[in-house]
């Protein structure tokens, strides 16, 4: 392989409130490497960590990078970024690259779920966030796991065997956390609470309205808690498909935009 051919890779970094994600993208938008790490207060350290891990995964080095696209809550903290772009624009670009058609995209990240109308050319035509009070769904799930005394990754397993969801308010993430304790005291099972928490998130998204088929979902919550997508499907009474590797959709979009800039 010629050295200049190898250089045609870019990185995309999605520095979110719960996780930092990075992908290494080569010719034709093919993902060569990926990595994810929990967000800690030292954003730059997190970015270095995932970027190094993604480069390792792709068997590349930093010198192979033709550009770095950054998005997400802490996109301003990505060292060496050649481009920054909004969450909505990057998730739309990433999902469109993989699906190849117009769609309603529900991005459920750790902060504020949003609905993105992806146009025929892959651009974001419209985007809407959930209310301020209903945001913070990642932290809400962490609190839920803490109240149930399980690791967050077990929530999905618990929810998948629940007969019915416990009634967990969807108005405000803090109210919802308190409601979980109340339901537990009333005797709700851990399984019902876990499923109730997923329904609570889905309800906040349903209130955004404006869903047009096909509906796709992406984001970290979708990656780790697919029960939220199932709850959304139930409440919307329509099919909701998942974008492949949903946690990396934003990072992929950022990488594609960086590649566009580099060429």
């Amino acid at each position: 392989m010629m050295p200049d051919e190898r250089a045609r890779v870019v990185a995309g970094v999605d520095a979110g409130t719960e996780c930092v994600k990075a992908v290494i993208v080569g010719a034709g938008g093919r993902v060569e490497g990926r990595a994810v790490a929990p967000t800690r207060g030292y954003f730059q350290a997190c970015v270095y960590e995932v970027l190094s891990a993604a480069l390792d995964d792709a068997q590349r080095t930093e010198s192979d990078l033709a550009g770095i696209g950054a998005t997400g809550f802490a996109m301003g903290c990505v060292p060496g970024a050649t481009l920054t772009a909004t969450d909505a624009a990057c998730h739309a670009a990433g999902a469109y690259h993989l699906i190849g058609q117009r769609m309603t995209l529900v991005n459920i990240g750790g902060r504020d779920p949003h609905l993105i109308a992806v146009a025929l050319d892959g651009r974001r035509a419209d985007a809407r966030n959930v209310r301020r009070c209903a945001a913070g769904v990642g932290s809400f799930l962490m609190f839920t796991a803490r109240h149930l005394d399980v690791l967050p990754t077990r929530l999905q397993e618990l929810a998948s065997v629940a007969d019915k969801p416990a009634a967990v308010s969807s108005y405000c993430s803090v109210f919802s956390s308190t409601a979980i304790l109340e339901r537990l005291r009333e005797g709700a099972s851990r399984e019902e609470i876990a499923l109730g928490a997923m329904h609570s998130i889905a309800e906040r998204i349903v209130e955004l309205g404006g869903f047009e088929d096909p509906v796709y979902a992406c984001g970290g919550v979708v990656e780790y808690f697919p029960g939220v997508v199932r709850a959304l499907q139930t409440l919307l009474e329509r099919e909701v498909r998942t974008v492949p590797d949903p946690i990396f959709t934003g990072a992929l979009g950022a990488a594609l935009k960086a590649m566009e800039l580099a060429t």
């Binding site: 108005y171 109210f175 304790l181 109340e182």
Partner: peptide, 10 residues
Amino acid sequence: NDLRCYSDEQ
């Protein structure tokens, strides 16, 4: 009407 705004416990 919006019971999400009321906490029984509180």
